[in-house]
Write a protein that binds this DNA or RNA. Sequence first.
DNA 1: GGAAGCCATCGGGCGTCCCGATTGCGCTTT
DNA 2: AAAGCGCAATCGGGACGCCCGATGGCTTCC
Lengths: 295, 295
Amino acid sequence: MIAKLEMFIALAREQHFGRAAVSLGITQPTLSTGIRQLEEQLGVKLVQRGSRFGGLTPEGQRALVWARQIVGDTRRLRDEMRASREGLAGHLRLAVIPTALTWASTLAARFNDRHPRVTFTVLSRASADILTMLDDLEIDAGISYLDNEPLGRVTTRPLYREAYQLVCREDHPLADRETLDWAELGSLKLCLLTPEMQNRRIINRQFMEAGLEAGAAIESNSTVVLVSNVLTGDWVTILPTDLAGFLAEGKPLSLVPLASDSRAHEVGLIAPWQEPYTPVLQALLDEAQRLARPA
Amino acid sequence: MIAKLEMFIALAREQHFGRAAVSLGITQPTLSTGIRQLEEQLGVKLVQRGSRFGGLTPEGQRALVWARQIVGDTRRLRDEMRASREGLAGHLRLAVIPTALTWASTLAARFNDRHPRVTFTVLSRASADILTMLDDLEIDAGISYLDNEPLGRVTTRPLYREAYQLVCREDHPLADRETLDWAELGSLKLCLLTPEMQNRRIINRQFMEAGLEAGAAIESNSTVVLVSNVLTGDWVTILPTDLAGFLAEGKPLSLVPLASDSRAHEVGLIAPWQEPYTPVLQALLDEAQRLARPA
DNA sequence: GGAAGCCATCGGGCGTCCCGATTGCGCTTT
DNA sequence: AAAGCGCAATCGGGACGCCCGATGGCTTCC
């Protein structure tokens, strides 16, 4: 039963029988009959089929909610028993927005320091993907913006508020300024993240409120590209404080704080809401709370 | 896996391998190996064993929480799919405190009127048992006091507040009084419920606050016994309004309202807290809300 | 019209589950 | 101290279900 629910979840995620089977390490016929049997046991058609996968039926959508809950709880049961067997151990999968990667790294390092038998996978993902992956049980927790998208049934632990810095070469005209207003950035050659990324949308809003348009001459989905561009030309970019400090370190770059908008851009840890928490997840939430920059 | 979790829950409930097996309709060896396999799969000893059942280990206690969640959600998945297949149908098991039985009856009747394909089992139980049975998945919902014991992870729907009446024969000295104070009951020959029942404890408290002792000459765990005693002798009893009206109807008995203590004694529907609700349970909660006596 | 992709079905081998019978252990009784 | 009894574990077998590779029917894309 649980195995079939896992098949169903994989199928809903992959939207394709073959790929779902591969992702579970079974063959396509096995998955096919598994879904059929699940449908028989529940007495309901879950999947719209032609000769191709055609999406879930309405009943399938409802069943998916329960399936995720059941399979998730089953994994949590296993995890917790393993933890009680061999101490706090296991594997945590995190998905993190690019601008919070240094924080994720710190969090993972500190956590691993305290609990050496817990290992990590840290993926860089867009904020919308993080919520999907949480739903699909592909990750155990994420780090993302807490105040933009509707978050759903999750627990959050605030970590910090993003404040931004202009990153430019040491020989740039603005390099020696103490602070800057967003309004002063209008005439610069900007490298920014691509518009589908939340961080870029936040920056766009700041520009808009300053009466400017955030026209980036170079866009990328990687912060490394942004900084390396700044190094090689007379470009500038805008990055959160911590990440800017990390990427600029040891390079001939200057960082100039931008007037911060304290209302928003709160970043924090996001985990599935559940009762009770497994020891490992509880420990992660605790570690995040310790790490949180005091407001 | 789920089957084994059901075995584990049954074992925790029955505290006895043989009885647990019978309650599941399987043999004792099957249950025995099932538990063993569950322990192997989780890598943890769940049950303390000598040559007898010796209680759950601490890990077993923790695992039981998850097992109940998983098995409960699995049943809810099945229920919901059946509902979407053949409309609102199925079976609801309620456990109800004795003094609320008439309300339970009304609730079940009205619900069945609206949804004829849903059938009911209504059990009379003490309030503490109701919570245990909810935990053990033996019932789907209960009717009990909302404000006395700690309720745990449940949803509640208030139904009414208990107000009490003295029940006596028509020829009793107090039969014609409009109202009574608790303090006036000190000298009467009382039949009351047994002290382990919550209703009796509430009445005890009322007596205590009136400076009296609630010494019952006859005790029973059945309200039928109480009323039939009142009929045959010069006894009196104390019952909630609705139940008193029901039991006294057509008999030579008088009902005299007692000064009510509006603070407490709230009675309502109790169901496991869960997200989302199955259609049947949602409908029951809705019906309870409609039925609730306006405060 | 041919090729490729996709899902369903088929048949066989293997694993697992369940049951009845029996054994082994510990407590109680005499 | 020995017998009796209740309880859980173990054993051996028969049956069922699951998984896989192979294949077939259908659709879509060149």
